[in-house]
Write a protein that binds this DNA or RNA. Structure first.
Lengths: 146, 146
DNA sequence: ATTACTGATTGAATTTTTCAATTATCTCAC
DNA sequence: GTGAGATAATTGAAAAATTCAATCAGTAAT
């Protein structure tokens, strides 16, 4: 067997490669707002969940990363005036995150960019194929203990 | 729409998340040999392509990364005695990479680990679903200009 | 033989992420 | 209500991976 055959059927490699390629794509989509992907996801989450309260720990869970990492991203976004930390009235250790007006505008751009990319992908491989592939990925990713 | 609905159909997010989760998985699979994923792929490539000559530039192309990055990885592998750089007799600027015995053993372990992971995934979502998802990913990743 | 180009390396810099330690707060059993 | 232990989040240092620009050596072509 040649390496190509091996790589093409290796889930780890295919996903790694796709993630790498899409990261480049993401930078060019989000680059105008100087956001990394995690920051973009945070903004989008706050936008969609509004007016529900979102806390840093939820974000860490949703995006499978550490609280430290989330904390850094939030600080960066807050420093740029895109969002605000507000102490949770029900638990003074926790924060509620809220988009500021400029952050809302940025979130809209982020969501638009992600939507556009999705449509491009649908055009390329077909909506059903794309959906099916994502479902498969999710069921693999959601149960990482196997 | 809530954020979950949005994320679940966003190719960028699903792939990002899957890649993150699998990276953790990869570390535990390859951690025993203290290899990062790129280094593991390099070893596997040299194993499969043997006795054909493999050059750093080919690896950079195959794995969608820079030559500098490949160079660092190769240096690390060479320092550990897993492979060897040999000057290309046909072009003294280029190198041919060759596994050393210890590197061959490691490559076998790497390939075994990737195979095992693939079978686990197949068991979880079904071989056909997995293959179909990977095909879709590949066609998205292979034509990044869209 | 000069010029332009190519393969690869190098080391610094950047970026992202993790990790351990810390702070502050909450909960609950007593 | 007090003290022990758990929890939310932050912090800053450290680690890991990658990029980038500069460089070196060799090739190719005119």
């Amino acid at each position: 067997m040649r390496i190509e055959a091996f790589l093409n059927q290796s889930p780890m490699f295919c996903i790694h490669l796709a993630a790498r390629r899409f990261e480049t794509l993401a930078s060019s989509l989000l680059g105008g707002d100087d956001l990394n992907f995690l920051q973009a996801l945070i903004l989008a989450t706050l936008f969609f969940e509004y007016p529900a309260a979102v806390k840093p720990s939820q974000l860490a869970d949703t995006f499978a990363t550490t609280r430290g990492n989330i904390s850094h991203c939030i600080s960066a976004l807050e420093a740029r005036g895109l969002l605000q930390r507000k102490v949770d009235p029900a638990d003074a250790r926790a924060y509620h995150l809220a988009l500021k007006p400029q952050g809302k505008k940025t979130a809209v751009r982020v969501i638009g960019a992600l939507d556009k990319l999705q449509r491009q992908f649908e055009d390329k491989v077909g909506k059903l194929h794309l959906q099916s592939a994502l479902r498969t990925l999710r069921s693999l990713a959601d149960a990482p203990e196997a």
